[in-house]
Nucleic acid binder design. Structure first.
Lengths: 153, 153
DNA sequence: CTACGATCGACAACGTGGTTGACCAAACAG
DNA sequence: CTGTTTGGTCAACCACGTTGTCGATCGTAG
């Protein structure tokens, strides 16, 4: 007999949440206690190359205004800074500060470590299968990262 | 070489999100266009037996005040109603209306159908493994359903 | 039976991640 | 030169959370 269908989303969310929660626990221990999940995604989207608020909005699937507000918070926390664009007086390029870069690098390390933990529990092959299976069932056309707004409304 | 660790949470979230999005698309088609993800979780937590706002808060891992506000919205949409408790004048029991029950039943059907879809893509055995593996790596001690607030702050 | 503490539900103020709409300034295309 | 895009910001608003406070009720200990 089949499992109840409603468990599947719960398991996926629980997995996602536990990884993100672990990430932020560890991040707090290495000097980034005030990074919130939303900031992490935003910094990832800004990347080392920087981005404008409009870019960021497009990458995250949110409005440029919402992206701008996120940048405000990132800036207030010292993770990013706006610099005027030399070639276009309208644009203000958001760049990650060294602190922002550090948070990004630490996050990558921690995620790798977490993945190894899962590999230890499941076996490397099994984890690879899990990832592969998810890639199959997940729509390939990218997806929006506006978690809070998506869920809430 | 190992996959990048940061893909894992993204895949899990994408899976979760695609299931929830599909659910609400289908739900909209069968007469429940205004159910939001948060409402679905809340109704699930209320259940056919009903619950008080405080109960709901505990089940969802949110404050009783937040639970009360969710009940307000559920009530405004006709999915739930508050009834005075005969034996305790403080308590107001939240009960799902027939419309609320319908939404819950439809959701269960849709989730089952969605799971079958995944089974078709992956194979029944592989899907069962995926679920089993997730159960292994996910902390067993339950988890909070305050998605929006968790992500945001 | 009375007094105290815990609980329920509500109100208020606030924080955070989103939304639209409006607007100006700068860039671009004709 | 003019009309249209585009980028950034301001303002108002909404949804989902938070904490703090409060009166009313319940349960229990004295």
């Amino acid at each position: 007999m089949a499992e109840a269908g409603f468990e599947l989303p719960l398991l996926l969310f629980a997995g996602f949440r536990s990884l993100i929660d672990r990430l932020h626990e560890e991040l707090a221990l290495v000097g980034h206690p005030d990074v919130r999940p939303a900031y992490g995604f935003a910094m990832q989207a800004i990347g080392v190359g920087g981005a404008t608020a409009s870019d960021l909005g497009r990458r995250l699937g949110i409005s440029k205004q919402a992206a701008g507000k996120t940048v405000d918070r990132l800036e207030a926390l010292g993770y990013a800074s706006r610099v005027d664009d030399a070639g276009d007086a309208r644009r203000k390029v958001v760049r990650l500060t060294p602190r922002g870069i550090d948070a990004l690098e630490r996050s990558a390390e921690i995620f790798d470590r977490l993945r190894e933990e899962w590999a230890g529990l499941l076996g490397v092959e099994r984890l690879r299968e899990l990832e592969g299976d998810l890639r199959v069932v997940v729509p390939s056309d990218g997806f929006r990262l506006d978690v809070a707004g998506w869920f809430g409304g």
